[in-house]
């Protein structure tokens, strides 16, 4: 899309009235030597400011690519991105990097998966925070340093003055992830992506980081997209959950509705693969049989059908569409959705 049409769309929809983020039929394909990888294949949702969306799926379901594609962080070469991403009414798909630079860090920011590799190893932590501040906010060096100090305190880092002068390798993983969060929230973005923010961290630190993200999200009234493979992570921390499988959203509902009334067999399988403390020891872990589908030659019909316990011939030939939201805002794509009784046997926490 050209710069002219970006201006047009922002002119027709005033920023104040448009929802913060509207993703419509977003597709992201990677051109590889083996063929076209359909990593994200038609995802739509709307997110308002102050709300949190959980995106859940196993490895290779396209959830990370989805977040990067929305933010426009993927490389341009060998990537086909189509559909629409409107941020405050401004179309971002096809937008020029020169426009995106204005949004990145300032309007939308991301906390990445692995804090051990996401910080520049040869740059002091303070510099990594102030750099973004000075890029976007046009403030003095002193002012930026003061802000960085306040940010470090607010993300719960003790002795922030000393930490500012340190290099990433002088900090623990949890500390680094706190720094990453400080960097992400530095300019006061309206939308925060958290891409598996706790996957690389110790279990003991995970809850702290998630709580920190939640506090910051509430205090700053940001919209947050929390990407994870762990349904437990999103359970108490999101307003809405989208379950992804093979690049598509297969079930989407407000968090409470999803956990009390899940309809898609994949969601059910994901949930029952979480080990439960109440189980006696040596209980065999439930797993989802098979592997995530090949995204170059996906199975025909429902992509989950080869691994689905309830699959029929119809599932293997016809792909179920994502249903229109019901009165609870619950959507799912399944010909034979899970009924209430089955859900109870899956053991909802």
């Amino acid at each position: 899309m050209s710069a002219a049409s970006i201006k047009e769309s922002s002119a027709t929809t005033p920023a104040s009235e448009a929802p913060l983020l509207v993703v419509n039929d977003l597709k992201t394909y990677f051109k590889t030597d083996r063929g076209l990888v359909r990593a994200v294949d038609g995802v739509s949702f709307t997110l308002e400011r102050g709300r949190t969306l959980g995106v859940v799926g196993e490895s290779g379901s396209g959830k990370t690519v989805l977040s990067r594609s929305i933010m426009g962080l993927l490389p341009k070469r060998d990537v086909e991105r189509s559909g629409s991403v409107k941020f405050e009414g401004v179309e971002l798909v096809g937008a020029d990097t020169s426009l995106m630079v204005e949004y990145w860090g300032d309007q939308m920011a991301m906390v990445f998966q692995d804090p051990m590799t996401s910080l520049n190893p040869v740059m002091r932590v303070g510099k990594q925070i102030t750099e973004g501040l000075r890029q976007h906010l046009d403030i003095s060096k002193d002012h930026a340093n003061q802000t960085a100090l306040a940010l470090l305190s607010s993300v719960g880092i003790p002795e922030p003055e000393r930490r500012l002068r340190q290099y990433p390798h002088e900090m623990s993983g949890g500390m680094r992830q706190r720094v990453m969060i400080a960097i992400a929230i530095a300019c006061g973005p309206k939308l925060l992506f958290a891409d598996e923010p706790t996957t690389a961290l110790d279990v003991t630190v995970q809850a702290q980081i998630l709580d920190l993200l939640q506090t910051q999200q509430r205090d700053r009234y940001m919209a947050m997209i929390l990407v994870t493979h762990d349904l437990g992570v999103v359970a108490g921390r999101t307003d809405e959950i989208a379950v992804m499988y093979a690049g598509k959203v297969v079930e989407k509902a407000p968090t409470k509705v999803l956990f009390s009334n899940l309809r898609h067999p994949y969601t059910e399988a994901l949930l029952s693969s979480i080990p439960k403390i109440s189980d006696p020891s040596h209980t065999r872990l439930k797993t989802i049989g098979g592997r995530p589908p090949n995204l170059i030659n996906p199975p025909s019909g429902c992509k989950f059908s080869p691994r689905c316990a309830y699959a029929t011939d119809k599932c293997r030939t016809e792909e179920p569409p994502l249903s229109a939201p019901d009165s609870d805002g619950h959507q799912f794509s399944c010909w034979f959705p899970v009924e209430l009784s089955a859900k109870q046997t899956a053991g909802v926490r």
């Binding site: 990097t97 920011a109 990445f112 996401s118 973004g132 960097i183």
Partner: peptide
């Protein structure tokens, strides 16, 4: 990854190349 971080901060490409 830290290059993606810099990009996500809104640092211009030229600066990412030379400073990061």
């Amino acid at each position: 990854d830290f290059i993606t971080t810099a990009k996500a901060k809104g640092i211009p490409t030229r600066r990412i190349l030379w400073r990061h």
